[in-house]
Design a binder for these strands. Structure first.
Length: 309
DNA sequence: ATGGTTTTTACTGCGTC
DNA sequence: GACGCGGTAAAAACCAT
């Protein structure tokens, strides 16, 4: 974690309060608001492409990426009709180069699989940037999608659905889970289909995805409810204590996270209504109430007048 | 398909502002 | 009266078998 100076929180306008958290979201230390601009890796691109010791500090070309259908390894023929010295080409040569360029472009997309990948990865980038997902997650999703293509899992399913499911899986693997609803909101495929394809992908590919931990949802729930950092950390500790008593078993993680946030907001004196929390978390008030009761009972908290245990 | 579990839906009653 | 909250029963969704 590194404090980036000169970054200003949109909400409280305090300089130097925004820092990266481990999920690639940039968060204000003061009010907990997640800065919703696109996550940018500010680090220098200093590493070795050849020797492996990092000493040469080469800096040429773009890094190899799963997000480009050919891993970013293809080349381009320059578009300016100039020779190596910058002099314009003759009419004949210009014509030849135009033809060459076109043919060269065509070789980049060879077959149906690659065409598929171009489409899918475009969709993946669209989804990823609309949801402000960090690049690591997008890469992870791209890897999953490629495996899905290899195993012919796209047959009978829409590309968009498989992309959305890959992204959902990637988010969970990276401990930064989104709900199916959140992804379904931005994808043309609905929550149901994403869930279904997700499950079959996981099964067929044997990807080890653990059940989503409720903790991963807390930062975003708090942020969209405009709750400050103290509430967020309170919700975390409550959650951890509840988890020790097997309260998390079998229950939907979003419901537990929502109840923790609700409880924490009351304890910290900035209460949110059940309704508000329910829309932020995408669960119903009933679920929040039930989890709330269970957590209170397990931690011996008075539901009427909750205090930190 | 089936059965067990959790979540949602829909509705009702209570207290307060 | 609108709103927040608590409760309930039945429907729906989910998951393993």
């Amino acid at each position: 974690m590194e404090i980036e100076d000169l970054t200003i929180c949109k909400e409280c306008k305090i300089v130097g309060t925004v820092q990266d958290n481990e999920h690639g979201e940039r968060e204000c230390m003061d009010c907990g608001l997640i800065q919703d601009d696109i996550a940018i890796d500010p680090g220098k691109d200093v590493r070795s492409f050849e020797g492996g010791d990092g000493a040469d500090r080469e800096h040429t070309g773009m890094p190899r990426s799963h997000l480009v259908h050919d891993y970013g390894l293809s080349t381009d023929i320059g578009w300016q009709n100039k020779d190596h010295a910058g002099a314009p080409l003759s009419k004949n040569y210009a014509k030849i180069m135009r033809r060459l360029r076109r043919q060269h472009q065509r070789t980049r997309i060879r077959n149906a699989t690659e065409r598929n990948l171009v489409m899918a990865l475009g969709e993946l980038q669209r989804l990823g940037s609309r949801m402000n997902l960090p690049n690591g997650i997008r890469e992870e999703a791209a890897v999953i999608y490629r495996k899905a293509v290899e195993k012919k899992l796209v047959r009978g399913r829409s590309i968009e659905g498989v992309v959305a499911a890959s992204l959902y899986a990637a988010c969970r693997i990276r401990g930064n889970p989104r709900t199916l609803d959140e992804i379904g909101l931005h994808s043309r495929t609905g929550r149901k289909e994403i869930g279904r394809t997700f499950r079959s992908i996981v099964k067929e590919l044997g990807i080890p995805v653990k059940p989503a931990s409720p903790e991963g949802y807390i930062p975003r729930f708090c942020s969209s409810l405009h709750l400050k950092n103290n509430v967020e950390s309170a919700a975390r500790t409550l959650l951890q204590k509840a988890a020790q008593q097997q309260l998390t078993a079998g229950r939907g993680p979003t419901g537990i996270a929502a109840a923790s946030v609700y409880l924490a907001s009351r304890i910290e004196g900035t209460p949110r209504t059940q309704r508000e929390v329910s829309v932020a978390a995408g669960v119903t008030e009933v679920t929040i109430r039930n989890r709330y009761k269970e957590i209170c009972k397990a931690l011996e908290i008075d539901p009427e007048n909750p205090k930190m245990p």
